[in-house]
């Protein structure tokens, strides 16, 4: 088992799927000659050529729709959004096109497409470049939404997403690209729609995905020193949500905190909190708590940005609250 970066894990997934299936192609801004704005597609143009690694103009709605049309005609496009922020000009193609085509055609046109790219805030990129849009897409029937937190999950889930016969929204963590982890050798896949216990524990369940898993690990390490055992569940897929392991964990710990980078109002965490109270109401010893990004556009100033982002300190406070320790 090799230790590689999240970026290289994604690159491996793309490379292996491009080799496996000639119907797979990668399209987006700077994916070819430039080798990827975040270097996820490094070396792919050299191996697969410009027919399959397609540099586009800055035209997100256009190439998102080209991807959907190509999928209708039998191809399996991987469409890179340089960042998910830019998908907002393409959202008509994703929501009105990719997500609904199978249904409104009475089952005739499934859309095997992956829209992928980095989401979430990085460092001081300000309001228009620092958004977690999982809730936007997870709201839409017809889409699947994936947000891996580790290199292994990134590789395994991207391969599954490319093989999936329906549209998959694939959120990569912009600040995770350089993170390292063990990735199983060979044709490694992770099924879409299966949660994973990222850290076993007994006192409180924390649900977190993408880079928030790292924040949860940090908080758990700190709390371990106080004798508090945190279980971290990473749903990995936000739609369809595999809530079984979350509920099983809550039945054991009787407490739950849902952590997400995005905005609080109608966030994915609100849905998870609903499912926990609905599915494990009798097991809860405290109301489900949520820790989220603050309900504001992202400010530029470094100190303000740090306050907006969910932190280990805020998570620890929420955990102590549901444990009635303060």
């Amino acid at each position: 088992m090799a230790v590689i970066t999240y970026r290289d894990a994604l690159n491996q997934a793309l490379r292996e799927e491009l080799r496996r299936d000639p119907a797979v192609f990668l399209m987006g801004e700077e994916v070819g000659v430039y080798q990827g704005a975040y270097k996820v597609s490094k070396g792919l143009l050299q191996e697969f050529g410009p027919q399959r690694i397609v540099d586009t103009p800055i035209t997100e709605e256009g190439f998102a729709g080209v991807g959907v049309g190509a999928a209708m005609a039998g191809l399996r496009p991987v469409i890179e959004m340089m960042t998910w922020n830019f998908s907002l000009v393409a959202i008509d193609q994703i929501v009105n096109g990719a997500a609904k085509m199978l249904y409104m055609s009475g089952g005739q046109f499934n859309i095997p497409i992956v829209f992928r790219g980095p989401g979430g805030a990085a460092h001081q990129l300000a309001a228009q470049h620092s958004q977690s849009l999982e809730a936007w897409y997870a709201n839409v029937p017809g889409l699947k939404v994936v947000a891996p937190s580790t290199p292994a999950d990134a590789k395994g889930l991207l391969k599954s997403a490319i093989r999936d016969n329906d549209p998959v929204i694939f959120f990569e963590g912009e600040t995770l690209y350089g993170s390292k982890g063990e990735v199983p050798d060979g044709d490694y896949t992770v099924p879409i729609g299966v949660s994973d216990v990222k850290r076993p524990g007994t006192d409180v369940t924390v649900v977190a995905w993408s880079k928030m898993v790292g924040v949860a690990q940090k908080a758990a390490d700190m709390l371990a020193a106080d004798g508090i055992s945190v279980e971290i569940i990473d749903p990995r897929t936000l739609r369809p949500l595999d809530d079984g392991p979350i509920l099983a964990s809550v039945r054991k710990t009787n407490r739950c905190v849902v952590l997400e980078e995005g905005w609080p109002y109608a966030g994915v965490g609100a849905q998870i909190a609903y499912q926990v109270q609905h599915g494990a109401f009798g097991d809860l010893d405290a109301p489900v708590a949520r820790v989220t990004g603050l309900d504001v556009p992202m400010p530029y100033a470094k100190n303000l940005e740090l306050l907006v982002m969910p932190s280990a300190a805020r998570l620890i406070a929420a955990i102590r609250e549901v444990l009635y320790l303060d």
């Binding site: 729709g65 190509a70 193609q93």
Partner: peptide
């Protein structure tokens, strides 16, 4: 209109 552009892209690709 982008969908039609995409089916045409597929014709060329295939």
């Amino acid at each position: 209109i982008p969908l039609a552009t995409g089916t045409a892209f597929a014709a060329k690709y295939l």
